[in-house]
Design a protein around this nucleic acid. Structure first.
Lengths: 252, 252
DNA sequence: AAGTGGTCTAGACCACCAT
DNA sequence: TGGTGGTCTAGACCACTTA
């Protein structure tokens, strides 16, 4: 970069944002795999011809987004979707008394379909392109607290099969990450109240017509690329959706 | 601070965290009022006998939490609860089509009461201490989308009256901030689905028993001190609760 | 022109981890 | 002991605002 612009001169964007872009690029290309360490900060500084401070500034951003994880004395690692790590970043259901439990997901249905107009739009596909549909349960303790209807682009997950999904160990996001190198890093959710339909009610163990929380999520990988659509129906008798506004965990 | 510990030597906590603590202290004591500018970074560096870098690191944290706002060329300001600023930090209801509208709050009921055991616990009071109860409407366009039941400690808002609340201009948080110097900086929310009760249904314009979103919020000021309890009942026909996971707005 | 925050650098030293 | 990230400093210069 300093080959192009003299040191200390900002051309268009700040240097650290450019470095951040290059790091994200390498991550999305799989140069560093989930769980693996990145080169040390001094190595990265050499590689991009910037100072360590600038490297740290770029990494800071990715650490805040939980895309990277720093461990003092060990290195900087690509974040994974293993339990206790990014889990609660994407799972906001807690017990009524506030206790967090590990959800146990189970996929109970798998089928292929074609995208309608709305689905295509939300997944950046063309209407009629092939998609995968799944139905997934989230269990906390012995109770099923949520039923997820999931939609994926078939092309992104070409060899995904019912067998693979059923026999996986861990969450779907972990599967996307380890098997397809697709790292879910962001999501948008829309919540509303609804009355539970019969099939879902049976799975949740509530009466048909019981009030349920409906969550529409779009999950994204790097560059805000949408990867998965998920409609979750949550039984909020006994569990709640938890959110913190303005909280800062351990800053960087 | 360097009078006590030699430069470059970390004693217990990092220096910038200590500076952050002192800044928060001054904020909570009202040394710098909402909307006003803090001393410049170089002045603060002199005041606390640290380098500008350390000051910036401390301010960074507070900016991420939206407690402070930086404006290049102008200064660093205490965040306010004016519309377009912290508003959407604490208001997550959007129109079904994703459009954000400014809510128009109106308080329709005001009374005094005594705290029961649970309320006391959540507000850090003793059972039997005096509290204020309010009922508040949130309007978007011509529709009432939420009914809030609010509880405050009477002692914190000693002279608060129905008149003041009704004649205010803006949100309650803005009132707390400007009139009482109490700055809401954080909140915890728990969401669940419920069936709408009769009185609330009438206010929302939905049938009794319609599915509604129920939000239980604890709003806090500095040092995680709870200030306000709020139970919001939201009509999610036409509007939704919106949440983003892993988003990073404009980092610092 | 002066003052503010924003970026970038270079270097010293600390804390932690692995060996 | 050597390598990693974490903290703190000092200084130069850029970008923006205000007067």
């Amino acid at each position: 970069m300093n080959d192009v612009f003299p040191i200390g001169v900002q051309s268009f964007a700040p240097l650290y944002q450019e470095v951040r872009r290059l790091l994200t690029q390498s991550l999305s290309e799989g140069e560093w795999q989930p769980g693996q360490a990145l080169p040390s900060e001094s190595k990265l500084a050499q590689r991009y011809h910037v100072s360590i401070g600038t490297i740290r500034r770029a990494i800071d951003d990715l650490v805040v987004e939980q895309i990277l994880v720093r461990q003092q004395g060990r290195g900087t690692f690509v974040g994974t979707h293993t339990p206790k790590r990014k889990l609660y970043h994407f799972f906001h259901i807690v017990r009524e008394d506030g206790v967090k439990e590990l959800p146990e997901p189970e996929t109970i249905d798998f089928s292929r379909d074609r995208a309608d107009e709305n689905t295509a739009k939300r997944l950046n596909l063309l209407p009629g392109e092939r998609i995968i549909r799944m139905v997934n349960l989230q269990r906390l303790g012995r109770q099923t607290v949520a039923v997820d209807h999931i939609v994926l682009s078939h092309d992104r997950f070409r060899d995904l099969s019912e067998k693979i999904v059923r026999e996986r160990d861990g969450t779907l996001y972990s599967l996307y990450q380890t098997r397809y190198g697709i790292n879910i890093v962001r999501a948008q959710e829309r919540l509303r109240a609804a009355l539970c339909e019969r099939d879902t009610a049976r799975l949740l163990g509530v009466p048909t017509g019981a009030p349920v929380l409906e969550i529409n999520r779009t999950a994204m990988t790097y560059h805000n690329t949408p990867v998965e659509l998920r409609r979750s129906v949550v039984n909020t008798k006994g569990h709640e959706y938890w959110n913190e506004l303005g909280k800062i965990d351990r800053r960087i």
